[in-house]
Write a protein that binds this DNA or RNA. Sequence first.
DNA 1: TTCTGAATCGCAACCGATTACATAAAAAGT
DNA 2: ACTTTTTATGTAATCGGTTGCGATTCAGAA
Lengths: 342, 342
Amino acid sequence: MSSDKEVTIYDIAKRLNISPATVSRGLQDHPAISKKTKKRISEMVDEMGYRSNHFARNLRQKQTNTIGVIVHELNSSFITSVLAGIEKVSTEAGYDLIITHSSESVKKEAANAKNLFHKRVDGLIASLAFDTNGLDHFKPFVQKGVPVIFFDRVEQDGDSTVVVIDNVQCGYMATNHLIEQGCKRIANITSSLNRNVYAQRHKGYQDALFDHGLPFDKNLLIIDNLSEQGAISSALQVLKLKPLPDGIFITNDFVAAVCMKVFKEHGLRIPEDIAIVGFNNDAISKLVEPALTTINYSGMDMGMIAARNLIGHLEGVSNIHHTNTIVIRSELIIRKSSLKGG
Amino acid sequence: MSSDKEVTIYDIAKRLNISPATVSRGLQDHPAISKKTKKRISEMVDEMGYRSNHFARNLRQKQTNTIGVIVHELNSSFITSVLAGIEKVSTEAGYDLIITHSSESVKKEAANAKNLFHKRVDGLIASLAFDTNGLDHFKPFVQKGVPVIFFDRVEQDGDSTVVVIDNVQCGYMATNHLIEQGCKRIANITSSLNRNVYAQRHKGYQDALFDHGLPFDKNLLIIDNLSEQGAISSALQVLKLKPLPDGIFITNDFVAAVCMKVFKEHGLRIPEDIAIVGFNNDAISKLVEPALTTINYSGMDMGMIAARNLIGHLEGVSNIHHTNTIVIRSELIIRKSSLKGG
DNA sequence: TTCTGAATCGCAACCGATTACATAAAAAGT
DNA sequence: ACTTTTTATGTAATCGGTTGCGATTCAGAA
C-alpha cells in the first residue's frame, strides 16, 4: 500500500550537498573519499532508509555476483548437504545463490538453465536430471564464457569440469562386500545406464563379479526409475527371479528402503535371505530395519569444492578449464542389512 | 572465454534500420507494431542471438516479476510439494521464483529476507524457522507495500495473511484416535510451543484428553528440537517415564521414526506396548516398521493457494488484506503403528 | 609567498530497455 | 481533392548507480 518513493543516492547527495558520485564512492568505501564524508553519508543512508538498487548496479557493471544452481531434486539429505556446502562457500565470498530444481526432467532443467542464463548468473553449478542426454541447453553459457561446473550427475563430454565420486570403485566396494558376505547370486537394481553415476556403479558391480569369478547374469540387472512405484515393481521383479538372488546392490537408498519393505512383506528375511547394500547414506538408511549398509560421501564437501572452484575461476585465481575432474572421497558404511555372518 | 559483446535492441534496430523503441515494442507484441515489422524483428533477434537485459527492464519498470520464497528446510517431501505447488501457479502466471531456506535459523531467515528485499521481489511466501519469534525482519516488506504470505509455520500477529491447517483439530484427531485404541496414558512429543503449529497441536492433544476425562500430566509433554540427536534423547526420556505411556502423539514423522527405532531397540513393541501417531505423512512414514499412522495434508494445495493469493493480489484481482487465514483440509491416515486392536 | 603533489570531490557519459508524446504515412470519409 | 482518422514508427527522457577524467583544495616544500 503506502510505499513512499524509494530513496536514491541522488536524494542523499542533495541532502548532504555533495555529488551522487561521491555518495556512490563513499558507499563502496572508495579510498578517494575522506572518512568524514563517508561517515556523513552512512549516517544519512540510515536516516533516510536507503537501499541500493541492484538493477542499476548490475546494469552498469554487467556482473551480478550471483551463482545459479540446478539440482535434480531437493528432497534428499545428500542434495541438501551439497546445497549447504555451496552456500557456505559462496556466502563467504559474497555471492548470492539462485537455487532451482528440475524435478528429474530435462525439460524443466532446460527451462531453469534458460532462466538463469537470462538472469545473467556469473556462474552455474548443476547436477543433471534423470533423463538428461546431451548438454545442449548449457551451450549458451559456454558461448558467453559463463563457467559451469557439474557435480555428481554429470555428462562425460570431456569439455566441462565435474566434481564426482569414483562411482566404479563404489560399485565395486559394495558388490565386493556382498561377495565377502558369501553372496553368490547378486542382483543390481539401478537406474538408467545413460546416467553416468548408474552406468559406472554398474560397471563396478560387474568388475567385482568378474574378479571373483562370478558370472554376470543380465536377468539380475534391473533398471529402476527412482519413484516409489518403480521401486515396488523392481522389488516384485526380483521376487520372480528363480532362484532368488542372495544379495542386491541397490544404487539408491530410497529405492532400497522400499524394496526392503516389499521383501519383508513377502516373508523374506534381510540379510539372511537377501543381503542389501544401498547408496548415499540418506537419513532413511539408518531408520529402516535392518539398518541399511550403504555408500557414504560428503555432499557438503562436494558442494564446497564445486563452489570454491567456480568462484576461484570467477575471481581469476584459478581456471576451471585446466581442471577436468575432481574426485571426492567415498566409503562403504556397513550396517545390518548386509551382515550375513551375524 | 570468447564472449562477444552482448547484443542489445539498439544493435537490432540499427541492422533493421528502425528505432530501438520499435524493437522494444515489437518484442512485447505491442499492438501498434505491424506484423511485418514484428516478424523482421523476431528473425533478427534469432539471427543475432539477442537476450533481453532483465536489469535494464527492471530498473525502468520497478517491477521484477519475481516471487521470493523462504522455507525452513528443503529435505522433507512436504516442503518439496509445497514448492511444487507454488511453482506450478507462479510459472503459469509468468512469475519467477527465488527459493531460499533458513536451515531452521532465524538468523539465516532474516538474512534471506533482507536479500530478497534488496533483490526487490514483488511478493514473498514464507514458512518460519524453528526459533523465529517476531516478524520484525519482514517489516521492510510491509512498509514498502510488498505483499507477504506465510504458510504452515506462521506467526499469529493478526496483520499478515496465512495459509495453514487446523492444527488444533489435527492434534485432537491424532490424540482421539489413540484414545479410541484404548490408550490411557498418552505422551506428546512435540517441538517449541512458541511455534504456532506445535502449540496448536498440543492444544488439540489437551482438548482430546479433557473431552475423554483423561488427566493432563505435564511430565508426558516432551519438547524436541527436531534433530536426530534430539529425537533420540526425547525417546530416552520417554523410556524413563514410570509407568511407560501406552501411546505417543509425535508431531513430526522424522522424529517419530527415530523414536520408534529407539523404542524397538529397547525391546518395546509397537503398537502393542506403545502406539504411535506422527505428523506430515512424510515418505518415511510408509517405510518404517510398523508403518506410521500420521496426519496428512496437501503441501501441493498449500503452495498453490498461497501463490494464487499472492499473485491475485499483485495483479489487483484480489486483495490479501481482506483475507486473514486460509485453512487447508487435513486428515488422519491410520496405519499399523497405532492399531492396538489388530 | 609561491609552487607542487596528494587528497577530495564533481561532471557527465554510460549501462539497456521502456514509454509518454510527437510525427509521418496510409486509409477512410465527404 | 482535401480533411479526418487510424496505423505505424520515431524522439527523447527516464530508471539509479558507476567511473574515467578533470577540477579544486590544502598542506608542506621551496
